[in-house]
Design a binder for these strands. Sequence first.
DNA 1: AAACCTAACAACCGCCACGAG
DNA 2: TCTCGTGGCGGTTGTTAGGTT
Length: 374
Amino acid sequence: MGRPPCCDKIGVKKGPWTPEEDIMLVSYIQENGAGNWRAVPTNTGLLRCSKSCRLRWTNYLRPGIKRGNFSDHEEKMIIHLQALLGNRWAAIASYLPQRTDNDIKNHWNTHLKKKLKKQLQTDPNLKDDSFIASDKGQWERTLQTDIHMARKALCEALSLDKPTTTTTTDTTTITTTTTTTTSSDHDHHQQELLLMKPSNVDHQNGCYSYTAKPSVIPQQKQPSSYASSTENISRLLEGWMMSSTKNPEISSNQTNSETTRCSFNNKTAESSSSEGSSSAPFEQSFESLLIGFDSSTTATTTTRTTNTATTTMTTSSSVVQLFQDECKPDFEITMPSVAAAPLMLLEKWLFDEGAVQDHEDSLEISLEGTPELF
DNA sequence: AAACCTAACAACCGCCACGAG
DNA sequence: TCTCGTGGCGGTTGTTAGGTT
């Protein structure tokens, strides 16, 4: 007897998600946070497998996901990381925080693999191994250096009581604290980290800022942690509008709800640029869904003091959990162990503009044989 | 205009790791 | 230590849009 399926196969819907389903899922996660996927279908009424809900969230609806064309830099990153890590897409995706592993995997399979294959065919002298090996050496050396730096930083963090490092990058702006291993410090910093929440989300540039909120954190759910999903909802509704004209399932229902859908779509479409207002009931219900989305998206700077964090120890666990769940996939801000610290630095190094630039130089060297790839 | 082909991407499936009891 | 539930991950398939014949 094998393990029972994660969900009852009977009555479970498969195939593409409809906007209605997306909205149900999003609103549920907004209310309850991501996690306990098993309960999601039950609590939302979605006729979907819990795993399907999780995948839909992580691969499509999750805040901060960048879609569309991969930049040259991203492609280079993927190629090199793939050479180093193999098909460990999740690991590769951790270096491209705005991309999902699925997205990277698809891009690799549909674009990059062919590019490389073509390149290898046109230039048989270009051996994959040598290509990887030379670069790998550079990476490993840099990794060693970073581990050393990380250890040093850790030592400093342990010796100083105000461990604060600021990471500012071109693609990601994170203000965080150095994680430590001593119990008190660790807990303290963990709590500081957990109290930070996305205060500024710039999807255009993929820029996040995290700000420790003052002590006023309600006992109940914190919808604002879904603040960055406005674009996602807007996007899915755009898809809704498009698909509604051809999706029989939806178009068949296009009767009285069509107008409200249109107006909501307009609203969400413009919501990214301005604060509009409309009286459509459907829209209002969505507005309430989006409310809490945060006012802070207009903030442009990140400010954070140690005081604010230390005075907010009464945070409800749900909030903490919610934020953990929201952020972990993107930035791994909460470091469960000291072992993650070097990784953090490595990530910092990877995304640091200067470092990337420097590193790109080395990439250029190692990619000299494949200039036409890019 | 229709049939066919291909690329792109969303979603599914099965396996595995991990934590709780 | 074992079992079970859950979530993560990678491989694969299915669907659809766009291009070509």
